[in-house]
Simulated scan of single mutants.
Amino acid sequence: MLDTYTLMWAEQMKAYRKADAEGTDLAKYASLEALGKFRLDLAHMKQAGTVGGGEVGHTPRVSSIDLDAKLPKATVTDCIDLTDWKAKKVGTGEVLPLPTNQPKRYVAIAKAERWDGRWMIVDYTPDGERAC
């Protein structure tokens, strides 16, 4: 389960570094609903003329899992660390500061389901109100 979450994040970072999911395997790990949230973020980045740079830190853990359900489900709770993440202006590479109300470390919750023998992230919700 955590492998799928980690692979999803690796593909998400590829997309954020160019503000485009094209050419990534993000859809291999994230379902339509979760993928839609990421694509919305990417659209905002593209509209603002920004891309991501640096690294996002993680400390994911499986906070619940039900393997006995007809459709096995799990929840991952992650502490997202933006200390080494930078937004950059396309073309110039100018580093832009994060919004002042953006915490450097916050909780994110990912919901996963096991489909045809593999885990898929079906929902991803960052919670900027919950610091970690």
Results as ranks from 00 to 15, higher is better:
M1T: 14
L2K: 09
L2N: 13
D3K: 11
L7S: 14
W9N: 14
E11W: 00
Q12L: 02
M13E: 04
M13W: 05
K14S: 00
A15I: 03
Y16Q: 01
R17F: 05
A21N: 13
A21S: 15
G23R: 03
L26I: 13
L26H: 00
A27V: 07
K28Y: 01
Y29K: 09
A30D: 08
E33F: 10
E33I: 12
E33N: 14
L35C: 02
G36L: 03
K37E: 07
R39H: 05
L40H: 08
L42S: 08
K46E: 06
K46N: 11
Q47K: 10
G54D: 08
V56S: 03
G57R: 12
T59H: 10
T59M: 02
P60G: 05
V62R: 04
V62N: 07
S64A: 15
S64V: 05
L67M: 14
L67T: 14
D68S: 14
D68W: 00
L71Q: 15
L71V: 15
L71A: 15
V76Q: 09
T77N: 04
D78T: 08
D81R: 09
L82T: 09
T83W: 01
D84S: 14
A87H: 05
V90F: 02
G91K: 10
G91Y: 09
G93M: 07
G93C: 08
E94S: 02
L96K: 12
P97T: 10
P97C: 07
L98G: 07
L98T: 04
P99Y: 10
P99E: 14
T100R: 06
T100A: 13
Q102S: 06
K104M: 13
K104Q: 13
I109R: 08
A110N: 04
K111H: 12
E113Y: 03
D116G: 09
R118F: 08
W119N: 02
I121E: 07
D123C: 03
D123T: 02
Y124K: 03
T125Y: 02
T125H: 11
P126C: 03
E129W: 01
E129T: 15
A131S: 12
